[in-house]
Design a protein around this nucleic acid. Structure first.
Lengths: 199, 199, 199, 199
DNA sequence: TGTTAAACGAGACGGTACGTCACGTCTTTAG
DNA sequence: CTAAAGACGTGACGTACCGTCTCGTTTAACA
């Protein structure tokens, strides 16, 4: 009977971890995400492949981990800082800050991760748990306040409202390309707000 | 100077083509899309790999070709059959017929293709040219009529209106999962219409 | 019943034939013999592959044909011109003229052809019929005369005598490398003559 | 700077090595040498192709390795066992034992390897280093002794004497076919000895 | 504080699929 | 009917990574 199959996080070498994440991000930036491979990361980080497989289930997970680590703080800070009494202004700021600010130039990373997630359910879950879900939850809080304050129709499910907003961003990212600039984020919020306001 | 490196479509063997497309679809259905490989398709179709590479640039292109061929007619017929005077009814029918009807059970194929397209710009273009673009164009025609008839606000770009509608579907498919049923397509149209109607 | 399986040599296009042979030789010289391919020859000669297969059984046969055509006259003329009364002088001249003169710089072609012949019995036969055999026969004539004139021991099979001589050349070409110069051909003849002279 | 691209022989798996060599020999025997392929060997040995490429540069090298391993001991033992005082007897025994005994039925393997070596300089070197050279060196020792004892003319380079002998064997193998039997090896030695004896 | 179990680097290994090459057969088109 | 052009089925090539599996060698927890 093997005493333990799962590795012991307490003994994990933080330098190794950092080297792996850094290598993953660097290679993604330099060679394009399609060329990221576990072998490449291991070689670049000066690390055995085994060590990567010990802590991550797939290369997508490594990239997600590396990318999310850099992103999370900024992303969630932005989302929480929009706390004025003007929902329209707050919404526009949240969309702009998260999509153009926090994510910004690394939209291709997000696109690639979602692409990978289409054939990797684990990665899909991880992605939702770490980024998509928390983002939605934070925005939902603000929407519910707006409903309380009468700025959004009370009969709308806040998460459906978020669908309406964020879907436009992801759709442009993944399906039907177009510029991702301030005019676009404004338009996204405007169009959504037309439908969300109480009649 | 070589006179021509590109193969001559006139000499293409239609039986071979059909066998390849059929094999690609069958394998996608049976083994799951992640297991589709050029080698597998070639073996199953009784065809040389070279023959596949001669006519398609990637396995995604083969699957797209196979799938689109079966889909196109039904999809576009559905979109054009919604021609009543009630825009809301037409919209709901178009969404339902295309998303639940024509695409239906093969939504995973679409998700996988879009996933692939995130690291294959060629495939992304092909996908837009064959499916996404034509669909949008057809819906745009109906929206413009609705604007003429006063059922949709005239200051809205029809393509942004389409974004608003279809984005919700793709978002649920690719990013934030949930059921794809009639209640959902109804809700998609309802929510979009709230914002599209003239004030 | 097919009226004829073998093509009719009378209808053979001499220009096409010449172009093929020339292309084969040119490619052998330029890219090295290992890179000669039927496809390459066809492309370079501006000829369909079918046409090559119609007239030659293998690429080795094409190269042999091309090379032998250029070689034959010179080779056999040299061998017949040694007709003095001094067998030693004649032998040395025959060896020198054939091995260094006629074959000369194209020894690698010969080596490659014999290499091919090790896995292509057809080519082996062709090679013997066109080059090896005729050469041996011509030298045998001169040896028999030397036996009649008492310059070679009468109990030696002329063809074994030829083995003794030519084997040294081919051995150095194929098995145990060394310079192919006049000193070598002299030494080959000297060493052989030691054993051939009457005791 | 990559510290080392060459694999570490210490980590080589001897079972795998043995399986590969055995498979190579077995396939050569069963299907004929022309049909030996790296893919075939890998499949038969239950081994990844990469593993073969890691340790051998070409299929010729694998076959040579497999064949030489089985051959070496017998071959060199035979050559060293001829140590009587009668050079003629020793020579005849060495030729017979090595050519008919040790090599024996696997002469086609040797022919094929030399054929391959004509377009593979690496293989040519390996072949010389492992088989041809050592054989020549061992025979040279005996010839030098014969010169000391006055049985061979002292002015003859021992290696040229070996040329004279072995060339006849290889010539018949590679160029001008004929039986390989005891009568032939006797004749080879006799003919060579005629020229080697002191006058 | 020395023992010992683990994490670690290195990379060999059995595999799968890649994309390319050349083979030899075949079909189509032009003269 | 020959020949050019080249599509086709076939099969091997050599490469890239995959994920698993030893190997020593640190290294840190605990005995």
């Amino acid at each position: 009977m093997s005493p333990s199959r799962t590795p012991d996080p307490a003994r994990r070498n933080p330098q190794t971890t950092a080297a792996i994440l850094e290598a993953a991000l660097a290679m993604a930036r330099e060679s394009g995400l399609a060329k990221v491979s576990i072998e490449g990361i291991a070689a670049r980080a000066g690390v055995g492949k085994r060590t990567i497989y010990r802590w991550w289930p797939s290369k997508g997970a490594v990239v997600l981990d590396a990318w999310a680590q850099r992103l999370e703080d900024r992303l969630f800070k932005h989302l929480q800082s929009a706390q004025s009494d003007d929902f329209e202004a707050d919404l526009k700021q949240m969309v702009k800050d998260s999509w153009l600010g926090a994510i910004g130039d690394s939209r291709p990373v997000l696109a690639w991760l979602i692409g990978e997630a289409q054939h990797d359910p684990n990665l899909a879950n991880e992605l939702r748990d770490r980024l998509i879900g928390p983002t939605r939850d934070r925005v939902a809080v603000r929407i519910r306040r707006a409903q309380d304050e009468g700025q959004v129709a009370p009969d709308i499910d806040p998460y459906r409202a978020i669908d309406l907003i964020y879907a436009q961003l992801y759709y442009r990212l993944l399906v039907s390309p177009g510029p991702h600039d301030e005019a676009f984020t404004e338009s996204v919020a405007d169009l959504a707000l037309r439908g969300l306001r109480p009649r």
